[in-house]
């Protein structure tokens, strides 16, 4: 029902050439995580992992992903947002 745009995702991965990718999905799409990982790993050489927990919005990528050397995080269901300045 919702377009996962896997072609666009694959294209982006091929362009950016990350070694390690993390995918972040809203709860309603978490059941598709295996399909997304399988597709990315079949079509690119990026190792792909799934964020286990929350995906509240574009404001919600977790901190510290560089420690485990994630090069690219892909989040579904949201678009770029503008953080308020204080």
């Amino acid at each position: 029902m919702f377009n996962l745009e896997l072609n666009k995702v694959i294209e982006e991965i091929k362009k950016q050439k990350p070694k390690q990718v993390l995918i972040q999905l809203p709860d309603g799409l978490k059941q598709k995580a295996n399909i997304i990982v399988d597709t990315i790993e079949e079509k690119t050489s990026a190792k792909t992992f799934i964020l286990f927990g929350s995906c509240y919005g574009a404001c919600d990528p977790p901190y510290g992903l560089d420690v485990i050397k994630i090069d690219l995080m892909i989040q579904w269901g949201h678009n770029r947002f503008h953080k308020e300045t204080w």
């Binding site: 029902m1 919702f2 377009n3 996962l4 745009e5 666009k8 995702v9 982006e12 950016q16 990350p18 993390l22 799409l29 574009a58 990528p61 992903l65 560089d66 994630i70 090069d71 690219l72 995080m73 892909i74 989040q75 579904w76 269901g77 949201h78 678009n79 770029r80």
Partner: peptide
Amino acid sequence: MVRLFFVETLYEKE
């Protein structure tokens, strides 16, 4: 720095 990429996941029907 981790790069971020968003997929809007649009509803497919008109």
